[in-house]
């Protein structure tokens, strides 16, 4: 067994002392593996990702647990070690490249600067590498685009430029925070395919945070579904799409418009809304919205229960949950 690329154990992140944004996340990534973290706003997916870069302000947030990336303990790093770690071991791409790129420097200058900060390279060498990166992310006429400012590029080009910047110091791990959400459909698929190709070519490990199951399936080997700060179901993309076991995952799949039986029929919506993270219920946080919830669900937090090879669900009712998938059992009996 080789050393995992990322190992997160019992990660807890609390904001302002009360908001438990992440509440015990365990996640392991093998080298070269792509895991998608799926969840709705407030599920803790982005918070988990930012914790891996230690981006949360230490004064207003508390991060507990252990995170090991490429053998390095992330929480124990000094500021100096952290500066080396960010960029060279782990790099991150964001939803909005305009906010992540510096508007007053050309994209090429920014890449050159990042390379020279981490490595001993002459300006010419760094520039040559930047050009190579631009070719790698398939930016047309890369030579000219290196000298463009971020605002002079179109949305898709900016996203490619940000990926090039992230890859500048040959990181082992790429963290992607909703990188395709703001893009148009025809551009989104280009970026998804690019990420998939780069991953294969460079052997990257990627955590891909998204709220879009479709985008996750296009790039991820495994999918982890988050709800109220925890991973409620985890498995290979195939297992999760074909045989979901957590009622929340099942609900997400069934409420999708393309899954509707016929035009004009009602969608199988999950009733209610996500819980307030400052006042989490004692039991399973999904219990108030769950059609299968029984008393023990409301009493204790369910542990991860194995339901197949490499497939776990934090649900004590996985024995009956597949019945939710059949169209006969519409969730009309949902608790009010």
């Amino acid at each position: 067994m080789t050393q995992p690329a990322i190992e997160i154990r019992n990660l807890r992140v609390t904001f302002a002392g009360v908001v438990r944004a992440v509440d015990g996340v365990d996640l392991t990534l093998a080298p070269g593996e792509v895991v998608a973290l799926i969840g709705e706003s407030g599920s803790g997916k982005s918070v988990t990702l930012r914790s891996l870069m230690r981006l949360h302000p230490p004064r207003r947030s508390k991060v507990e647990g252990t995170m090991t990336v490429a053998g390095q303990d992330v929480l124990a790093m000094s500021q100096r070690a952290l500066a080396d770690y960010r960029g060279a071991t782990v790099a991150m791409i964001f939803q909005e490249p305009l906010l992540a790129l510096d508007p007053v420097y050309t994209v090429g200058e920014q890449i050159v600067e990042v390379i020279r900060r981490h490595e001993k390279a002459s300006k010419a060498e760094a520039r040559a590498r930047a050009l190579e990166l631009f070719q790698k992310v398939r930016i047309p006429s890369p030579e000219r685009r290196l000298d463009a400012y971020p605002h002079e590029m179109s949305g898709g080009m900016r996203q490619r430029a940000m990926i090039a910047l992230a890859l500048a110091c040959r990181p082992k791990v790429l963290l992607a925070d909703e990188p395709t959400t703001a893009l148009d459909a025809t551009v989104q698929i280009q970026i998804l395919l690019l990420l998939r190709d780069l991953q294969r070519e460079l052997g990257l490990s990627i955590i891909f945070v998204t709220h879009d199951l479709g985008a996750a399936v296009e790039v991820a080997d495994r999918i982890a579904v988050m709800y109220a700060g925890r991973i409620v179901e985890e498995g290979t993309a195939r297992d999760l799409i074909r045989g979901p076991r957590h009622p929340y995952t099942i609900g997400l799949l069934k409420s999708r418009a393309e899954g509707a039986l016929a035009k004009g029929s009602r969608l199988d919506a999950i009733p209610g809304s996500p819980p307030d993270l400052a006042h989490l219920p004692p039991g399973c946080p999904f219990a108030p919205r769950c059609p299968l919830a029984i008393d023990p669900c409301r009493a204790d937090r369910p542990p991860p229960i194995p339901v197949g090879p490499g497939h776990t669900a934090r649900c004590i009712r996985t024995d009956v949950s597949p019945t939710l998938l059949s169209p006969a059992s519409r969730s009309d009996a949902a608790p009010a």
Binding site: P271, G272, S273, P275, D276, H279, P281, P288, R289, P335, A336
Partner: peptide, 11 residues
Amino acid sequence: LAQHSVVEGPA
């Protein structure tokens, strides 16, 4: 109302 009522914790 019954069908679409927003289920929610303590308001």
